[in-house]
Design a protein around this nucleic acid. Structure first.
Length: 974
RNA sequence: GGAGGCGUGGUGGAGUGGUUAAACACACCGGACUUAUAAUCCGGCAUAGUCGUGAUGGGCUAUCGAGGGUUCGAAUCCCUCCGCCUCCGCCA
């Protein structure tokens, strides 16, 4: 074609790039948002609007943002942005969980390394005078431990933890922002904030005053060498050889009759208070010589062999009799009973488990159930001691007092002493080495012990609290609905809440010891809340017990004087769980001003992973119910976990083991694909199930992204000369094709809104991507090229289509803006006369666009014809008789029943739909068969519009043009 | 140990009683266009058995983890089994 004709076409123009370049472009836009204070602008623009509060569950301030954490944040951002888009005032206050073991663990690990390095450097040779009297190795060891304890003092650890937490808050904040998540990033809530800690303590004070909190013993892992309680994460399992023993317990009132127990920890026998049996097992009495031994029938042969019973008879022992049986402790002055327990197994031992509630979790549970004392006669140094849990005469014998449990070369004083006692009392049936997996301290590598320690608890069954919590659960909407079972199960089965931790990095429990009894008092706690709000909780660690006591002691205090302070901190679940008080009730921007009662502060939505049913959802519910009198949320949304291409979960620990090559930080994906593609991938996943992340999937989503971007680009590029104020065509003046697409789009809008309202983002993804691929790309965009390019620029038909495109591009940008935050904002700027404001400031209230009954029917007919016609065209193309569809003439033969009575305009719509130059409808009176024929079009190809027309060359001035183009050219070239 | 989820074509993923052998996309193959051009459009594309031969096309049957059941009719409802995965068990 000659250039002059090409210049008369309205070819698309736009600077909206086809290539997204997200990785480079997104950070620029982000910067723009931040310097314009976009988040603040949005909040300002929604002032006075109905409020919608999504309360952020605080991620742990540790490490880079994991892809799973990113998923969570992005889902939250979808909700917040969607609600904002629909006109709500939806503030987002991000939070961080700052205290807790993982940080303290990491920090103390680092500090220990530092200490080791310093120690090695500064070590001095021992003085000669010491060498004579003391074991030099021991002296050095003791000195080292003292120094280390000093180096790792709570104050030092806390300082370093703070530094560490703050560092990672910054890192994560940057990474969250990069994902396009908008929020009040400059004013997040941090569980380490003075104000937060203070409000947390005030909530705690309420709960204490209401009588929920009590002190009791509970077994924890304890490392004798490190003299510290260990969390499960600090325990590693290793093979260990234990001195296992078979011991006989004399049955009361039945001479020469014994229950046989087996244990791998003889040192726990002094704490034995009961035995457990399994009521589903069959027990027998084995008569060996004069003695009778009761044990599980299935293990009798094994036990007999070990104990050297060559000649014995067995008689069944009815399980019911255990209910009344009592036995004498082999070397303590007390008696025990037998209790049924499911955990008694039939594969090792004797069918009886020796129960020491102070030394095992299962034992503890059984002890609680039956009201046994939690007797744990072991001190911090791992030596036997006397305690207050039993009357003096029932305590362990003097010979054991002071004996150490600490093992050296597989032996311990305590075990040896117990074994000696058992032999002395003729109670030891057999002893052997037993190799098994046993928990060890991760640092000292020593076997850990289970030891009951005083802990603070929240009583769950206080004042019918459990029932009230379950009732409250029913008032909350759980999505997906199985979540309600999860949380109910968690609340139903949970034991009392152990809220104290023997840890430094946390909120101190402001309790005092008066020498014997603990003082935990609501008024004093509130006093400390005020002090901490001013000075921070380091105050507790810096001041002495007497200083603190004198500060908060009520004037009218009549009780004992405190002599020491608690060293425990609150379980971090109390930290994050009290956010209802510290955040929801505090932040002005989170109040539902138009509501009353609890609804003023209650959050509309919590949205976390399914593990939080037992975690944050539960701790928040329980604390808010106990302290505020209501659940903190109205709806709880849950998502599954990220798994990799092999459907295995992606975990941090896995990477720590090394050799894990699948990227699992959010940053890795953002750097490769850009945040919008990552966000689109999140939207594409049905988060209620496991979410699969892999290069392949993200890539695929990238294809969809390109399709959407291209559709937007096509629309923008054809709006370059469109001014909505001047050129918009009224609904009833729009051409059929434009009315059709707007009708279809209106349906899409309704579906998308439903999907968003139900938090089903993957339907948004599916519906939109399908619409883009089918209705837009394959049909509408293809069909309208001709009129857009070749009609006179200001013709009604072209303006009609531009009106359609304008509405489409605005609607698409709006509906996608919660997902494609960067791309839609970019495209928004290119929409004519859009005022330069961000898409994120706009609202989306789609106006329904309904087609008439007749239109609906006609388009159904036209689309029924299309596949047959396209097939026909394809056949001709294969036969090389035509190239593109415009080279063809299509002849349709069918009854009126099939084709309907088409108006000229409808017929023209069909021609456009098929993209052919000519369409002939020849009606047969009878039959409902539709026949389609495609032939080479009549006339000649117009140089300008490529249509084949019979009037090409009719105008001598433009011998290569059709009549329509001649008219257009005359208009275009003045 | 407890709780929950999943199993559809080469892949992702729609589909919960018939209009679905199965939307849409990706991958792959073939074609068109050069006026969305690092784009766009069109077509093809499951496996097995079987019939048959007017032959590079057609008919029938089975198959949506396996088996059984309900129903006129099932990927879709019920049961059993197999396989996979996740969460929880005081780590957050």
């Amino acid at each position: 074609m000659t250039t002059s004709y090409k210049d008369t076409l309205n070819l698309p123009r736009t600077d909206f790039a086809m290539k997204a370049g997200l990785v480079e472009r997104e950070p620029q836009r982000l910067q723009q948002w931040e310097s314009n204070k976009l988040y603040q602008q949005i909040q300002e623009s929604r002032r006075g609007a109905p409020r919608f509060v999504l309360h952020d569950g605080p991620p742990f301030a540790n490490g880079d943002v994991h892809i799973g954490t990113a998923l969570n944040k992005i889902l939250k951002d979808f909700v917040v942005k969607y609600k904002t888009l629909r006109g709500f005032s939806a503030p987002y206050i991000p939070g961080w969980d700052c205290h807790g073991l993982p940080i303290e663990f990491k920090v103390s690990q680092e500090m220990r390394k530092e200490f080791e390095a310093q120690w090695t450097q500064s070590r001095k040779p021992l003085q000669d005078s010491w060498k004579d009297e003391h074991d030099p190795v021991l002296v050095e060891e003791v000195t080292k431990q003292l120094k280390q304890k000093e180096f790792l003092s709570p104050q030092n650890i806390r300082a370093r933890c703070l530094e560490n937490a703050q560092h990672f808050i910054d890192v994560q904040r940057r990474q969250f922002r990069r994902l396009g998540v908008l929020g009040d990033w400059d004013n997040p809530y941090l569980t380490l904030d003075k104000k937060y800690e203070a409000d947390e303590l005030r909530l705690f004070a309420d709960i204490v005053e209401k009588g929920f909190v009590y002190r009791a013993k509970k077994p924890v892992y304890w490392c004798i060498v490190c003299r510290t309680a260990l969390a499960e994460a600090e325990v590693e399992y290793a093979e260990h050889v234990s001195q296992s023993v078979f011991v006989k317990f004399r049955v009361v009132g039945q001479p020469k009759t014994f229950i046989v127990i087996w244990t791998t920890t003889p040192w726990t026998l002094p704490a034995n208070l009961a035995v457990a049996y399994n009521k589903d097992l069959q027990y027998v009495t084995a008569k060996v010589g004069e003695e009778n031994f009761i044990l599980f029938r299935g293990l009798l042969p094994a036990v007999a062999e070990k104990c050297g019973w060559t000649n014995y008879t067995e008689t069944p022992f009815p399980t019911e009799q255990f209910a009344t049986i009592e036995y004498d402790h082999p070397f303590c002055q007390r008696r025990g009973k037998a209790y049924a327990a499911d955990f008694v197994t039939s594969d090792t031992g004797t069918g009886f488990v020796h129960i020491a509630p102070g030394h095992g979790l299962e034992d503890y549970g059984l002890g609680l159930k039956h009201g046994l004392p939690i007797y744990s006669p072991v001190g911090d140094r791992g030596c036997f001691v006397h305690t207050n849990d039993l009357p003096a005469e029932q305590q362990l014998p003097e010979t054991l007092f002071g004996k150490s449990i600490l093992e050296k070369n597989g032996k311990s004083e305590a075990n040896d002493a117990v074994l000696a006692l058992l032999r002395e009392k003729n109670s030891l049936l057999h002893q052997e080495n037993y190799s098994h997996s046993y928990p060890h301290c991760w640092r000292s590598k020593n076997p850990v012990i289970f030891r009951a320690m005083d802990q603070w608890f929240i009583k769950i069954d206080h004042a019918q609290f459990r029932e009230r919590a379950l009732a409250e659960i029913d008032r909350v909407s759980w999505i997906p609905d199985w979540g309600v079972n999860r949380i109910k199960g968690a609340v139903q089965s949970r034991p009392d809440w152990c809220i104290s931790r023997q840890r430094a990095w946390g909120v101190p429990i402001p309790a005092f010891l008066d020498g014997e009894k603990w003082i935990l008092n609501g008024e004093m706690i509130r006093h400390f809340a005020d002090l901490f709000e001013q000075h921070g909780s380091n105050f507790w660690f810096e001041k002495s017990a007497s200083e603190l006591w004198s500060l908060v002691k009520p004037r009218d205090w009549k009780g004992e004087q405190a002599v020491s302070k608690s060293n425990d901190t609150l379980d971090v679940w109390i930290d994050s769980g009290s956010s209802s008080r510290s955040v929801l009730k505090q932040r002005k921007e989170l109040q539902h001003d138009q509501k009353t009662g609890d609804e003023i502060w209650q959050a509309d939505v919590y949205l976390e992973g399914s593990d939080q049913h037992r975690g944050w959802f539960q701790s928040s519910l329980l604390l808010s119910l106990a302290g505020n009198g209501a659940a903190p949320f109205k709806t709880v949304l849950t998502h599954g976990f990220i798994v990799d291409a092999d459907r295995e979960k992606i975990s941090k620990s896995k990477q720590a083991q090394g050799g894990y090559d699948k990227p699992q930080t959010a940053e890795a994906y953002v750097k490769k694909y850009g945040a919008d593609v990552v966000r689109l991938w999140v939207a594409s996943q049905d988060y209620r199930n496991d979410i699969v992340v892999s290069e392949e999937r993200v890539n695929k989503v990238g294809e969809t992204y390109r399709a959407i971007r291209n559709a937007l680009r096509y629309q923008l590029s054809n709006l370059y000369d469109f001014n909505p104020a001047q050129h918009t065509v009224a609904d009833d003046q729009l051409t059929g094709l434009d009315r059709w697409i707007l009708g279809a789009f209106s349906k899409l809008e309704a579906e998308v809104i439903t999907a968003y309202d139900q938090y089903e983002f993957h339907f948004v993804y599916q519906k939109v991507s399908q619409f883009v691929a089918v209705e837009l790309s394959a049909v509408y965009h293809d069909a309208i090229k001709d009129r857009l390019y070749t009609d006179p620029a200001n013709s009604r038909r072209r303006r009609s289509t531009q009106t359609g495109l304008y509405r489409l591009v605005r609607g698409l940008c709006a509906m996608l803006s919660p997902v494609l935050v960067f791309t839609t904002d970019e495209a928004w700027e290119f929409i004519p006369e859009n005022g330069g404001a961000s898409v994120h400031l706009s609202t989306w209230q789609p106006r329904p666009f309904a087609l008439t009954e007749r239109e609906e029917q006609t388009w159904r007919r036209l689309f029924a014809i299309r596949p047959a016609a396209l097939a026909c065209l394809e056949k001709e193309r294969q036969a090389k008789s035509i190239g593109k569809a415009l080279d063809a003439k299509v002849i349709l033969d069918g009854s009126a029943q099939v084709l309907g009575e088409l108006t000229d305009e409808e017929k023209e719509s069909l021609r456009e739909l098929l993209n052919v130059s000519q369409l002939i409808l020849s009606r047969q009176p009878e039959g409902n068969e539709l026949t389609v024929e495609a032939v080479k079009a009549d006339g000649q190809k117009c140089e300008r519009c490529w249509h084949w027309e019979t009037d090409v060359g009719a105008e001598p001035e433009h011998p290569l043009l059709c009549g329509r183009c001649v008219a257009a050219v005359r208009l275009a070239v003045p």
